[in-house]
Design a protein around this nucleic acid. Sequence first.
DNA 1: CGGACGCTTGAGCACATTCAACAGACGTGG
DNA 2: CCACGTCTGTTGAATGTGCTCAAGCGTCCG
Lengths: 236, 236
Amino acid sequence: MRNEQLRESLKGKVPLFEGLPEEALDEILKRGHRHQLAKGFILFHQGEPADSFHLIIAGRLKVAQTSEEGQQMIVRYLGPRELAGCVAVCGGLPYPATATAVEDTWLLQWNRGALADVAERWPQIALNAMRIMGGRTQELQDRVRELQGERVEQRIARTLGRLVVQAGRRTADGIEIDFPLSRQDLAEMVGTTLHTVSRTLAAWEQEGIVRSGRQKVMIRDAASLSVIAGSGEQSS
Amino acid sequence: MRNEQLRESLKGKVPLFEGLPEEALDEILKRGHRHQLAKGFILFHQGEPADSFHLIIAGRLKVAQTSEEGQQMIVRYLGPRELAGCVAVCGGLPYPATATAVEDTWLLQWNRGALADVAERWPQIALNAMRIMGGRTQELQDRVRELQGERVEQRIARTLGRLVVQAGRRTADGIEIDFPLSRQDLAEMVGTTLHTVSRTLAAWEQEGIVRSGRQKVMIRDAASLSVIAGSGEQSS
DNA sequence: CGGACGCTTGAGCACATTCAACAGACGTGG
DNA sequence: CCACGTCTGTTGAATGTGCTCAAGCGTCCG
């Protein structure tokens, strides 16, 4: 893909570059290095000094955090036009989590200095970065609140709802989550065990709400799902 | 308190102003408006547009979020030299939570424009703001992980440990949390019910780890507490 | 003095975890 | 191409943590 095509495909859709003039976008793209990651490749490890940040062009990353006791937790998945590592780089902190490609992934990469340079010329970028960080903070706050008050079934439904927005792909049969997602992965996003996820999905499958298989989930009845997510009440 | 005294009391201790020259600090303090809040006063409400941010000089704020269903969750307490509203103002988002004074509180207040002005003259401020936001994000990530993997007792211990750092006051008998903190408050920080908190504290009191009363908690044996927080293992 | 608020304590229960065993699917290598 | 091992998912049963419901007590304050 040549630079013009790349620019076209990104124009007006990347939160970090919102409100920037075209020449800024050109300049910035020129300074970024393109990289390709094979499925399973680890982009950065939790605890490493954060020296560069990454814009995903195509593919998907899993961002996960591990505690000293080995507890694992999936912070989020990142898709095209989203940023990886921005919180750490902007804050001058080590990466707080590990990022792994769950599909073959293409990305554009800048180092710290490049970010500082362009942010000096177009301060709008710094504002955008702060807005993105603010959004992440809100997401996490919501998640904490959900973990505190809501039942597992409700949280699974909510999580699937978010994944549909982020990575849903319409098919004849319903909306499919467009990357490999195991029960274990879902469990680590929701804060439960793969057993409970399995049981819950099996129940939903019986009711025709989802169809799921090996590392695949398809939502057939999004309305029912959002009812479960919203209130937690439903008759069987 | 006059301005010079105020400056002295803040110098070198406010994360937002780290690395700034003295004259910057002077200029910034001059532009801030001083306010006093009586205990119980609400500084801002969740969902309001964020037009100003606040540096706490003395006192303490409770930052809490409420869901549509009435679920409440305490995000954090803020003490002297900390910032309230910075995530929202920097990100251009509405306040994500409600801030209430839990003691009589004095603060210094700036509006958006003032922040933008000084950040333009001393870009270091913007970097500091980002670092603070990054830190908040990490805290929340840790909290999510804890909610997912750890038992209630362990989380209560951890939360108390943090409160000791933030607001501990040495006394002859041990370290006391230096503001009114009810069982309900602790429950909303930890993600449990006041019943469970009450039972847990009662058990600890028997073992001599804490002494607690109406809206008061004193830690007598911080070592035992951090053992509980760390491993979750202990013989009764 | 009486009400409101914060705290304690008990009993029962439900949701989700833990433990355990198995069944398919995938892919790798012989 | 088949056999095997690994990875993913399913399902059952037992267990237990922490929630819900309920009642009562002490203290602070109007």
